[in-house]
Design a protein around this nucleic acid. Structure first.
Length: 911
RNA sequence: GCGGAGGUGGCGGAACGGCAGACGCGCUGGACUUAGGAUCCAGUGGGGAAACCCGUGCGGGUUCAAAUCCCGCCCUCCGCACCA
């Protein structure tokens, strides 16, 4: 779309005026009221370029924030930068490798921030820049470190050697949440969420945050959010936390020297002098199947494996050791996605505490270090055990049969019967239902001290150590004498040094910075070393919403009274990709801060709005010579030249990305069409929670609308200048009433959406209708030239027109702030449209004098009738039955029923 | 397999028990123009000359009335997935 006119040319003018007159949110300490509104969009990583992934949420929140301010609310709508992180470091690494000088992640980061802030200004976003935070600045990360120390104090932050996911490309570890399942050539593998490289397991000393201690609270908190957070997010979090209720059962394992896993599995005789008895606890959700146990399987990581290895014969030792080594060379997730269930018999036996039976113990790859890392295997009633038992020809024993009256069949030779039912062959529990048996067995075991009911979670503790440079240093000192020593609070922040060789080696870059690394132990004064890992950047972003409430505080993380003024965030807007990661971490941090007594709320975000993705159409050309993505222009050339047939082009809707050449640049569009047109287009695309596809032509509608509105204002301004008051008793005509109706319904519609589900596309549509109405009205009323004084008969119409323009400008101000301001002033506005306040709908204007009603005969519309909106039922019925077409369809039939829904419809039921 | 979202004109989408397709794009015709890829006006779900008929993934049901509610399927997208 080309455009010769320079429209609009007033956006920068208003941006300047607003910048000078901006009133910041009043964040003084005090109690939060209904008029205080904290709206927040997830802060961006400073990539240097504002894309649609930013423009959509920021446009949405800016519109809502502007609306709320016009309603008289005290609105907090801050912006900041999630500024630590690998992309900047990786870019710097690349630049160094290219031979560039003066390269530093800090530099790229700050340059990116400058560029993006400029782009945000061009959009007219009204953020509270005086509260801007950068997670990479010491005045911010000082408090990230402070939180870490508090967590250390409370035992939430702890250090352990653990098998972690390692990304060989990023050369750092990843949290469980940061590992994704990818598929390539039909093979599933676990990959880094950032770069897609397959991850490897690594044994490493690392810091963990005990988020699992909050598992139950995180889960229960979701109930509170049920109606204000998308189901999509709460259900994913529930799933991720993965609470399961079950029973721990203590088997007794008989550890026997010289045991062999080869040959037939025969339990040792009684009173074997070489036997040590030990507890082997298994976790099960199906305690009702305990009499069906035919073997016990333990995870390769299980602590007993080492004990067993020391006892078994040489051959068994070799087999187990090899098997464990091989299994552990895979990540846990890769092991899970492998289709073969494998295991090795240990030659040891375990005693079932309920049945007294002795069953063999296996090490098996399908058993995870979850629960107790050991399971009782019931092939008859568990698919996995069934598969394993079939593979290794282990016995199966049915102990559950379908409940009486159920038409299910249980053929355990074919497949496991996993449904609940009634117990058989289960000693004293025979005849009980599964549910009864689970409860009874749990209670009995607890009474005997051999286990009992427990709750397990899938959620794991959060590993936060990262072996990279551009992150928040961990405020810990390792002293040869004192061990792990926290940095004293007064020494915070532990500053990240600038002069670091950050080329990745697999070792933390800070390790090779002697001045940083060497330190005296704060406890004993001995030579010690700092922890040289940095924190996962998700730590930085887990509490920034609290810092905004008191962003310039250099004495404390924030003033609890100021936080109380704003917390919780009324509306948090962000992408669905954060459904688990950021949103569970942030909830966890908020709960922790709450426990420190610093905030009143358990949950940080009262309402969550998950916006969709703006995608682009990609064009991929696949021929014998090439297989790659092309731009639209390039494609056109290829097609015109005949080098490519239309059949060789694959068009797909995909997430916008550089490599797919399907991204549109919102800032370029702002330059071409103006910020308001782009803002409107983004919101007009559809409801913001849905994914949508960007099409450059889509800007035409909103752009034309803005231009037509503005043109109309300029050409009509004389019509509504200096209007005298309405003469007493003067009435407005039907057309003017219709216009008022359109204008006041726009107010109603906008309020409904801003206070409801944010389907702002329908508000914009309504505004477009109003512009169309205004145009039609001016034409129909023959209004021309200025008003001719008090006795001009067109005064009522002119007043209605002026009112419509006024309402239009004020209702559109949140969406298209520049155009609204310009139009408002062109029509004589003396203050900013944003100070004019939100218009109030006149209930009288919302009622039409005359309405049209459809009349149905047997559910099909056969005519419409016009009648005064005040008409009573009897009048409606009369008119309906007098309608010629209705008569035609009723003729010869008896009217059985007459349904009259006032204001909606009339249905004549005739047979 | 489990969980979530969705399926409406040529397209984006409205309507969440009451005239299906608001609004916009595109398209068709017209006006103005040296010109139109600008602007304005009119039309635009399909079929039919019309009266009308048919239409919201498919099949049932409830109702005077169903895109909307209920039951049973199909398809698409997203997330999780050996968690015992």
């Amino acid at each position: 779309m080309t455009e010769e006119r320079r429209f609009p040319d007033f956006e920068q003018k208003w941006q300047k005026v607003w910048a000078e007159n901006r009133k910041p949110a009043a964040g003084e300490p005090g109690r939060k009221t209904d008029r205080d509104f904290y709206i927040l969009s997830m802060f961006p990583y400073p990539s240097g370029r504002l894309h649609f992934g930013h423009a959509l949420p920021y446009t949405l929140t800016d519109s809502i924030a502007r609306y709320k301010r016009m309603c008289g609310c005290n609105v907090l709508n801050p912006m900041g930068w999630d500024a630590f992180g690998l992309p900047a470091e990786n870019a710097a690494v690349e630049a160094v490798r290219r031979g560039e000088k003066n390269v530093h992640p800090a530099r790229t980061t700050y340059e990116s921030i400058e560029a993006m802030r400029k782009q945000m200004h061009a959009f007219g976003y009204s953020f509270d820049w005086d509260r801007e935070v950068y997670t990479c600045k010491p005045d911010y990360y000082r408090w990230t470190q402070w939180l870490f120390l508090k967590m250390y104090e409370k035992g939430i932050a702890y250090r352990k050697k653990a098998r972690v996911n390692w990304c060989p490309d990023c050369k750092t570890t990843l949290a469980n949440e940061q590992v994704e399942t990818h598929v390539k050539d039909g093979e599933e593998f676990q990959a880094c969420f950032r770069c897609g490289t397959p991850v490897e397991p690594r044994e490493i000393d690392a810091w963990f945050l005990a988020i699992t201690r909050y598992a139950d609270r995180l889960l229960r908190g979701l109930d509170e959010l049920q109606s204000t957070w998308p189901e999509l997010v709460t259900s994913q979090q529930r799933n991720w936390i993965g609470r399961s209720e079950g029973v721990n059962i203590d088997f007794t394992i008989e550890l026997r020297a010289g045991a062999s896993g080869s040959g037939p599995l025969k339990p040792p005789g009684e009173n074997d002098p070489n036997t040590q008895r030990e507890k082997l606890t298994v976790f099960t959700t199906r305690a009702d199947t305990t009499f069906g146990v035919t073997y016990v399987a333990i995870a390769p990581e299980h602590p007993l494996v080492d004990r067993i290895l020391k006892l078994v014969d040489a051959r068994t030792h070799r087999r187990i050791a090899e098997f464990v080594k091989e299994t552990l060379s895979m990540t846990e997730q890769d092991r899970a996605s492998g289709d073969e269930k494998e295991g090795v018999a240990t030659g040891m036996f375990a005693v079932n505490p309920l049945s007294g039976e002795k069953v063999p113990v296996f090490v098996a790859n399908y058993v995870l270090m979850y629960g107790t890392g050991a399971v009782m295997a019931v092939p008859a009633h568990d698919e996995r055990d069934h598969e394993f038992a079939r593979e290794y020809r282990l016995p199966m024993k049915q102990v559950i049969k379908p409940a009486p009256g159920s038409d299910e069949k249980a053929d355990i030779k074919q497949e496991a019967y996993t449904a609940q039912g009634v117990l058989v062959d289960s000693g004293p529990y025979t005849g009980l239902t599964s549910a009864e048996a689970i409860a009874r067995i749990g209670a009995d075991l607890a009474a005997r001290g051999a286990g009992g009911p427990v709750v397990n979670y899938k959620l794991r503790d959060w590993g936060i150590s990262r072996q990279r440079y551009w992150g928040c240093p961990i405020p810990i000192i390792h002293c040869p004498a004192c061990g792990v020593v926290p940095v004293p609070e007064k020494d915070l922040p532990v500053a990240l040094p600038d002069d670091v060789d950050f080329l990745p080696t697999g070792r933390s870059p800070l390790t090779d910075h002697p001045a940083f690394r060497s330190v005296k132990c704060p406890g004993c004064g001995a030579d010690a070393r700092r922890d040289t890992d940095t924190m996962d950047t998700f730590v930085d972003s887990s509490w920034y919403f609290l810092r905004y409430t008191d962003a310039r505080n250099d004495k404390a993380i924030f003033d609890p009274h100021k936080a109380a003024r704003w917390s919780p965030v009324n509306l948090y807007v962000g992408g669905r990709e954060h459904a688990i990661l950021h949103l569970i971490y942030a909830r966890f941090f908020n709960m922790f801060v709450h426990d420190l007594g610093l905030t009143a709320h358990n949950e940080p975000f009262a309402r969550l709005y998950a916006h969709g993705l703006i995608q682009g159409e990609s064009r991929r050309v696949v021929t014998d010579e090439m297989d790659r993505y092309v731009t639209e222009d390039e494609l056109k050339k290829l097609l015109d030249s005949g080098k490519v047939e239309p059949g060789q082009v694959v068009r797909r809707i995909e997430k916008m990305s550089k490599s797919k050449l399907n991204g549109a640049d919102p800032t370029a569009l702002v330059r071409q069409f103006g910020a308001d047109a782009v803002r409107l287009t983004i919101l007009f695309l559809g409801p913001a929670e849905a994914d949508s596809v960007w099409d450059d032509d889509g800007i035409k509608g909103p752009y034309n609308f803005l231009r037509r509105w503005h043109d109309l204002v300029l050409s009509s301004a004389p019509l509504v200048e200096d209007l005298p008051p309405m003469a007493p008793g003067a009435a407005i005509n039907a057309a003017a009433k219709k216009l008022r109706h359109a204008a006041h319904s726009l107010i109603e519609k906008a309020v409904g959406e801003f206070e409801g589900r944010f389907a702002l596309n329908t508000v914009i549509a309504k505004a477009m209708e109003l512009v169309n109405e205004i145009r039609a009205f001016i034409a129909a009323e023959n209004l021309a030239g200025p008003c001719k004084g008090d006795n001009d008969p067109t005064v009522p119409s002119r007043r209605a027109l002026a009112e419509a323009f006024d309402i239009l400008a004020r209702c559109m101000a949140p969406f298209a702030p520049h155009t609204a301001e310009e139009c408002f002033h062109a029509l004589g506005g003396k203050v900013s449209v944003f100070d004019a306040g939100w218009p109030k709908a006149d209930p009288a204007a919302l009622v039409l004098d005359e309405i049209e009603l459809p009349v149905q005969v047997n559910g099909k519309v056969r005519g419409t009738i016009k009648l005064p909106s005040s008409a009573d039922k009897a009048a409606m019925e009369k008119l309906a039955l007098e309608n010629e077409n209705v008569k035609r369809f009723v003729e010869g039939k008896a009217i059985q029923k007459l349904i009259v829904v006032p204001g909606k419809i009339i249905n004549v039921v005739a047979r």
